[in-house]
C-alpha cells in the first residue's frame, strides 16, 4: 500500500528533475553547470527506472538498471568534465557562447 501513496510523489519528482535539467540545458552557458544539468536529468531518469521496477512488481530489475546507469552516467560526467578542463585551459573560459566557433 506504500507504493500507491508514494508513487505520485516519485512521478512528480521525475518530472521536476527532468524539467529542471532541460531548462538548465536551455539557458545555462557555463560548461560545468551544463554537466550538472545533465546529471540532474539522468537522476530523474534513475528515479523513473526504480519506480518502474516497483510498478512492474520487479524491484530487482529497476534497481539493477539504476545501478548500471549510475556507472555509465558517471563515465559520461567524467569525460564531460575532462573536456571542460581542457576547454578552460585552451579558451580561458567556460562560457559556451564564447567557445562557439563552429557554426553555419
Amino acid at each position: 500500500m506504500n507504493s500507491i501513496e508514494i508513487l505520485p510523489v516519485v512521478i512528480a519528482a521525475v518530472f521536476c528533475l527532468l524539467g529542471i535539467g532541460i531548462y538548465a540545458l536551455l539557458v545555462t552557458r557555463n560548461l560545468i553547470k551544463v554537466v550538472v544539468a545533465l546529471q540532474i536529468m539522468v537522476k530523474g531518469a534513475l528515479l523513473a527506472l526504480v519506480a518502474a521496477g516497483r510498478l512492474a512488481g520487479n524491484v530487482d530489475l529497476g534497481q539493477s538498471m539504476a545501478l548500471t546507469v549510475i556507472v555509465a552516467d558517471t563515465i559520461v560526467a567524467v569525460v564531460g568534465l575532462a573536456l571542460a578542463v581542457q576547454i578552460r585551459r585552451h579558451f580561458g573560459t567556460l562560457d559556451l557562447k564564447s567557445i562557439a566557433t563552429l557554426r553555419k
Binding site: 521525475v14 527532468l18 535539467g21 532541460i22 540545458l25 560548461l31 551544463v34 554537466v35 545533465l38 536529468m41 539522468v42 530523474g44 531518469a45 534513475l46 523513473a48 527506472l49 519506480a51 518502474a52 521496477g53 510498478l55 512492474a56 520487479n58 530489475l61 529497476g62 538498471m65 546507469v69 559520461v76 569525460v79 564531460g80 573536456l83 571542460a84 581542457q86 576547454i87 585552451h90 567557445i99 562557439a100 566557433t101 563552429l102
Partner: peptide, 26 residues
C-alpha cells in the same frame, strides 16, 4: 574540444530521454 563537448551534451541528453522511455515501458 568544442565539437566534443557539444556532441557529448546533446547525445547524453538524448540518452537520458531513452532511459525515461525505458522506465515507461518497463
Amino acid at each position: 574540444l568544442e565539437s566534443g563537448i557539444k556532441y557529448l551534451v546533446q547525445s547524453a541528453a538524448g540518452s537520458a530521454l531513452i532511459l525515461i522511455g525505458i522506465a515507461l515501458v518497463v
